[in-house]
Structures are given as structure tokens and as C-alpha cells.
Design a protein around this nucleic acid. Structure first.
Length: 440
DNA sequence: CGTGTTTGACCTGCGC
DNA sequence: GCGCAGGTCAAACACG
């Protein structure tokens, strides 16, 4: 019995690894295709024939990904292809970036400090001081500041921590000012020196709202489930920041305005905070109690915010007609895996809206995962695929946020037990929820 | 005994 | 300079 279990476990592990590798490869290819599609279009819109401006455009396309990528660095979109010498490669290296490590190491005293992610994206309130040394360091400081962008996800959940597929270790807890609920600090433990950290705190106004703030870049491959969350938040960050960054020449004066400009239909769901010390993208999945209704109004079926494609609008990399399906399945699986109960109708409704948004391409109706014995892509797979498409269309952030909102907060509050017992990825170690949120 | 959590202390940045 | 707040460390502790 034990040997059989072990054998099964090994098989599962192997399958999962292969699956993750395949998925990474797929995502990389999809995003590469997106960029190939996007480039000619942007060329039309902007000055033609100016190689310098083209370089700038390429930078604009990359910078947001440096900003923050919660996905694994090894699949860090196309950074490695486009900027082999840039920060993404540094972030992949455990020994860290040469630009900050010296100062960091000289200051750090413990092991934890040695592998401190501060040089890799989690350097709160320290970079300005550290980077006053030289002029080059100033540039690096600016870049480091950009990398410190955070993605904050607000979602309704009774669970102490949302399950995002990663393995976290709690390393601190503080009482934050103005909030009776303590703020917990977690560090990713899936790799030895993974710099990614997250803060988990309940909303002071609404205790049922869980605010999870991610920061840093994973230096290791992510399990599918983790990649789904990472890709989603990363995509949101990419899009919001790419929008704001594309206007960087005019300064980041009013990010929320920019966010609304980019995502006019989701101004209440995705915002960029300028008041925060670092750019913070907030995906508010708690608003719009029933986004389906919002998007289902027959008279105004998910109006495209842009009558004409925006300048940075890129054609859908995968077949657009597939997007609603994968999204719908993602939603279905998410509801299934997290113990939530989302009806097939809800999913189909979301899928229909997604489909209409994706270009009115007909797509086969959703098949519940429980139906038949067909292969059903996992939540991670489908969400990641959708996310890859998402990155090519800013409007999908709104749709995604609305859809997830419907799952997490809208109609079915979490049962607080969405652990990985029912998770599709056996190799994925879900976050270990802290025992409790005891006050300090 | 190994791993993860708790929690008081410490460090740092910032505003006054 | 001082106090405050956020973030982190690390010893003590709990648990399997």
C-alpha cells in the first residue's frame, strides 16, 4: 500500500512537472506571438522608420514586466529573450543583482538578510539611501523602484489566507495603524532564496475582505496553480503599468486616471495607487457584488471601452474564440477547486461575455468539468492561457476581475477551507494557513 | 527532530 | 533629534 502510494505520488509529481514545463513553454510562445502581432500595429501608430523610437517602444514593452512579475523568472515572459542583460536576469540569479548586493550584504547580518530580496524587488524604504552612491546607482534606484511595484488583491474570503498555489512561510506579524486586524508577512519558501513576499491583512472596514499584497519576483518555476495567480496578478500589473508607463513621458501624475483610461470599464476594480510608497496595483475583487449582472445587461452587453482599438491594442494571440472557453473553464475549475459553488450558468454567462468581448467569435458551449470523461484543463492551465491572452488586451483585466469577483466574493463567499485537498495539482503545495491571527 | 509559527526586539525611513 | 510606523529578525515555542 505504501509503495503504491509512493509510486502514485511519483507519477503525479512527474506528470505535474511535465505539465508545468509544458505550460511555461506554451505561455512563452503565446506571449512571443503577441509581441509579434503587436509590433507592426504599434509601428503603424507611431512614427515610422525611426529606429530610435522603435527601441523606445521595445523598452516600453519590456519595462512594465520589469516592474513586477509575480510569475516565475524562468518564464518571465519574454524578458530573457529581449533583455538578456537586464534586471530580469538579475532577479533570476540567487546571488542577486550586483547593483545592490554589496551594500545589502554589508548591511545584512543574518542568513535571511543574505538572501534578502531587497535587491530583487522587496526593498521597502531602503533603496534611495542605498543608491545614493553613484550616478549609475540612481538609475538603478529608479529601476529598483519600478521593480518594487506591488500587486494587491482584495477578495472576500473567510480563510486566513487565499490559496495561490505557492508555499509561504510566515515570518512576522504586526499591528498596522488604523486596522484592528494584524498584518501578516509571508515569504515564499518554494525556493531557497525566493524573494517573493506577501502581506495578508483583513480590511478594517470589512473583515470579510482579505487584502493580499504580493511583491517580488519568483526565482523558481511555479506550480500550475501558483502560476495561475501569479500570471493573473502579473498580467494586471503589466497592463496597468504598461499603460501608465507608456505615458511615462508625461509623468506618473495621476495613475488612477491612467488606469481608468486604460480600463474605463473597470475603474472600480483595478486601480494604481500613487499614494503608496511604491506603485501598487490593486485588483479589487470585492466590488460589483454581481458582475455578471453588470456585464449581462442585454441592452449593453459589455461595451467595449474603445470604439476603436487602442493604440496598444494587440490582436489576441490565441484564437479569440477560445478565450471565453478557457476563462469559463477556469472559473468553473476555480469554483470547483476552492470549494465554491459557481453554477454552470454563471460560468457560461461569463464565458458569453468574454466571448462577446473577444470578437464575437462563436465558441462551443461550456462543458462542466464533471461531465464526461474528457480532459478538462485545470484551473491553472485555463487561467494561465487566458492570462496570456489577457496581456494582449487591457479590457480583459476588467473581465477577469469581474469574473473572479463573482467567484470569490460575489455570490459565494469562501468556505474558508479552500486548501489544496481538492487541488488539481498534487505537486503543488498550497500555502499553509497560519494557525490564527492572534493579535500581538 | 525537523519544520513552521509566534512574538518581542530591532532596524530603518519619514515627518515634525 | 525624537517619535512613530512599517518591516524584519530570531529565539522560543508548538506540532506532527
Amino acid at each position: 500500500m505504501n509503495s503504491e502510494n509512493r509510486r502514485l505520488r511519483e507519477m503525479l509529481s512527474q506528470v505535474s512537472n511535465n505539465y508545468a514545463a509544458l505550460q511555461m513553454h506554451l505561455m512563452a510562445m503565446m506571449q512571443q506571438q503577441q509581441q509579434q502581432n503587436a509590433r507592426p500595429q504599434s509601428t503603424l501608430e507611431q512614427e515610422v522608420g525611426d529606429r530610435k523610437s522603435e527601441e523606445n517602444r521595445n523598452e516600453n514593452a519590456v519595462v512594465p514586466r520589469q516592474f513586477l512579475d509575480l510569475g516565475p523568472s524562468s518564464t518571465n515572459n519574454n524578458d530573457q529573450m529581449e533583455e538578456p542583460t537586464n534586471s530580469s536576469s538579475e532577479e533570476r540569479t540567487l546571488s542577486g543583482s550586483p547593483r545592490n548586493n554589496n551594500t545589502e550584504l554589508s548591511r545584512n547580518k543574518g542568513i535571511g538578510r543574505e538572501e534578502s530580496p531587497e535587491s530583487q524587488g522587496w526593498a521597502p524604504n531602503k533603496v534611495p539611501k542605498l543608491n545614493n552612491a553613484s550616478k549609475a546607482a540612481i538609475d538603478h534606484a529608479a529601476e529598483a523602484t519600478m521593480r518594487k511595484a506591488r500587486v494587491s488583491v482584495r477578495a472576500r474570503s473567510e480563510a486566513p489566507m487565499i490559496t495561490d498555489g505557492c508555499q509561504w512561510r510566515k515570518y512576522g506579524q504586526k499591528m498596522a495603524k488604523g486596522n484592528p486586524c494584524p498584518r501578516a508577512y509571508y515569504r515564499c519558501t518554494m525556493a531557497v532564496a525566493c524573494p517573493v513576499r506577501k502581506q495578508v491583512q483583513r480590511c478594517a472596514e470589512d473583515r470579510s475582505v482579505l487584502i493580499t499584497t504580493y511583491e517580488g519576483t519568483h526565482n523558481h518555476p511555479l506550480p500550475p496553480a501558483a502560476m495561475a495567480m501569479a500570471s493573473t496578478t502579473s498580467a494586471a500589473a503589466n497592463m496597468l503599468l504598461s499603460g501608465s508607463m507608456s505615458s511615462a513621458d508625461h509623468g506618473l501624475m495621476n495613475p488612477n486616471f491612467l488606469a481608468r483610461t486604460i480600463l474605463p470599464c473597470s475603474s472600480s476594480m483595478a486601480t494604481i495607487s500613487a499614494s503608496a510608497p511604491f506603485p501598487t496595483i490593486t485588483l479589487d475583487l470585492t466590488q460589483s457584488p454581481n458582475p455578471l449582472q453588470q456585464y449581462q445587461r442585454p441592452s449593453t452587453p459589455f461595451q467595449l471601452p474603445f470604439q476603436n482599438p487602442p493604440q496598444n491594442f494587440a490582436p489576441m494571440a490565441p484564437n479569440p474564440s477560445q478565450i471565453p472557453q478557457v476563462m469559463g473553464q477556469a472559473l468553473y475549475n476555480q469554483s470547483k477547486f476552492s470549494g465554491l459553488q459557481l453554477s454552470g450558468q454563471d460560468i457560461e454567462a461569463v464565458a458569453a461575455q468574454l466571448q462577446s468581448h473577444a470578437g464575437q467569435h462563436p465558441a462551443p458551449p461550456m462543458q462542466p468539468a464533471a461531465a464526461a470523461g474528457q480532459h478538462q484543463p485545470s484551473f491553472a492551465e485555463t487561467l494561465s492561457a487566458a492570462t496570456a491572452a489577457l496581456t494582449s488586451d487591457p479590457n480583459f483585466t476588467a473581465v477577469l476581475a469581474a469574473a473572479i469577483s463573482n467567484i470569490i466574493g460575489g455570490s459565494h463567499p469562501s468556505n474558508g477551507n479552500n486548501n489544496n485537498n481538492s487541488h488539481p495539482s498534487p505537486s503543488t503545495t498550497s500555502a499553509t494557513p497560519p494557525h490564527h491571527f492572534g493579535g500581538k
